[in-house]
Simulated assay, not measured.
Amino acid sequence: MDKVDQSLISALRHDARASLSDLSHRLGVSRTTVRGRLDRLRQNGDIVGFTVVLKEDVQTDAIRGLMMIGIEGRGTDRITRQLRGLPAVRAVHSTNGRWDLILELGTGTLAELDAVLAQIRRFDGVSTSETNLLLATHKQS
Rank of each mutant, 00 (worst) to 15 (best):
K139L: 11
K139C: 04
D39G: 11
L8T: 01
L86M: 05
Q140C: 03
D22V: 13
L113A: 00
D5N: 12
S129G: 08
A18K: 03
A11T: 04
L110R: 04
A11L: 04
G36R: 11
G75L: 02
L20H: 05
R26M: 10
N96E: 11
R64Y: 04
R17I: 06
G28F: 07
L8P: 02
R121S: 04
L135C: 10
A115K: 00
M68K: 10
A62N: 15
D61N: 11
Q59A: 13
G75Q: 07
D2Y: 14
R13H: 11
L110F: 08
R31G: 06
Q59C: 11
L105E: 00
L117F: 01
T128D: 15
L38T: 04
E112T: 00
L54T: 12
S10R: 13
I63D: 01
V126E: 04
T32Y: 12
Q119M: 08
D77I: 09
V48G: 13
D2G: 15
L101W: 04
S10E: 09
Q6M: 10
F123G: 03
E72S: 10
A136L: 11
L8Q: 01
G65Y: 00
I71C: 09
E104P: 07
S7P: 02
L20M: 12
K3M: 12
A115D: 01
L8A: 07
A88C: 01
L105C: 03
G85T: 02
R90Y: 02
T32M: 12
R98Y: 14
I71F: 03
V58R: 14
D2L: 13
L20V: 10
G36L: 08
R64L: 06
R84N: 11
T137V: 14
L110V: 03
S10I: 08
L27N: 09
G45L: 06
H25N: 11
A136W: 15
T60Y: 14
L38W: 08
T95N: 05
L38V: 09
S21Y: 10
V29P: 07
M67W: 02
